[in-house]
Simulated scan of single mutants.
Amino acid sequence: MFTILLTGCDSANIKRQLQENHDKLNPNGDRGICLYLGDLKNYPYTTKYMEKNEYNERMFYGNDRFKKRLAGFSEIGMFTREKVAEEYGEDIYRYDLTDLGTKYLKSNNFCFGRVTVTGVNKLDVVTDSIGRTTKMVRFQFEIENVPVWVTTNLPIIAQLYGEGVQRILTKNEGSSLMRFIKVESGWSMQEGVIIQYGYY
C-alpha cells in the first residue's frame, strides 16, 4: 500500500468522480445512506428462538442483532409487531412492513437521502489478494433529504447502530471510506454509504 499526497487538482478530480458515482448509484436521491437491517428480504417474518452454544455463537449474535433491529424499527413505524407465541420464556413476534417501511426498504436496508461530497482527505492505492489495484479514498460528505422518521428517532437508531451514526445523522455530515476497483473502462466504485454496525 502507498499513500498519494493530493494536490488541489487531484482532490477536485476525485471529489467530482465520487459525486458522479454516488449520483449514478442513487439517481433518485433516496438511497445515499442505508441502514443495514439483515439478510432477510421477504416479509412478514416471525422471529426464532435460538439457544447459544459453542457451535453457533456467530449465528446466535446475528439472530439477536436482527431481532433488536426489527423491534427498534417497529418502534419507528417501519414494521407492525404482533406477539404470536412464547418459547422457553422468550416472546416470539411476527413482523410485517408498514407503508412507511415498504417505501424506504431497498433490498435489505432502510435507505434515504443523497450524499454530497464536500472534501477528500486521503487516497491509498493497494493491490488486493487476487491482484486487483484498488483505490481507498477517505472523504467528507453532507446528507440531503433526511426524512422525518430518521430525525425524530435518532436515539433508537443510535441504540441499533452506535452513537457515531447518531452524530452523523444529527449534523447531516460525516466521513467515510470508499473503495474503487480498477476495471477495463476505468475505476468502479463499489457501493454507497451503508451502515452495518455503526463503523465508519
Score class of each variant (00 low, 15 high):
R138S: 15
F139E: 11
F139W: 12
F139M: 14
F139H: 14
Q140I: 03
F141R: 05
F141N: 04
E142V: 00
E142A: 00
E142K: 04
E142W: 00
I143V: 14
I143A: 03
I143D: 06
E144A: 07
E144H: 02
N145S: 07
N145M: 01
N145A: 09
V146K: 10
V146H: 02
P147T: 04
V148D: 11
V148C: 02
W149P: 06
W149Y: 07
W149H: 06
W149Q: 09
V150D: 10
V150K: 09
T151P: 08
T151E: 14
T151D: 10
T152P: 01
T152H: 05
N153G: 09
N153K: 09
N153C: 11
L154G: 14
L154F: 13
L154V: 14
P155M: 00
P155G: 00
I156H: 07
I156Q: 09
I156L: 11
I156Y: 07
I157T: 10
I157D: 09
I157V: 12
I157R: 09
Q159Y: 01
L160K: 02
Y161L: 02
G162C: 06
E163F: 07
G164E: 15
G164P: 10
G164Y: 10
G164S: 14
V165C: 07
V165Y: 08
Q166E: 15
Q166N: 15
Q166V: 08
Q166I: 08
Q166M: 13
R167C: 09
R167Q: 15
R167I: 08
R167T: 14
R167E: 15
R167G: 09
I168S: 10
I168A: 13
I168F: 06
I168E: 14
T170Q: 15
T170A: 11
T170S: 15
K171G: 05
K171D: 13
N172C: 11
N172D: 07
E173L: 04
E173D: 05
G174H: 06
G174K: 06
G174W: 03
S175C: 11
S175M: 09
S175I: 03
S175P: 07
S175D: 13
S176T: 11
M178E: 05
M178C: 03
R179Y: 08
R179A: 10
F180D: 04
F180H: 06
F180A: 05
I181H: 04
I181F: 02
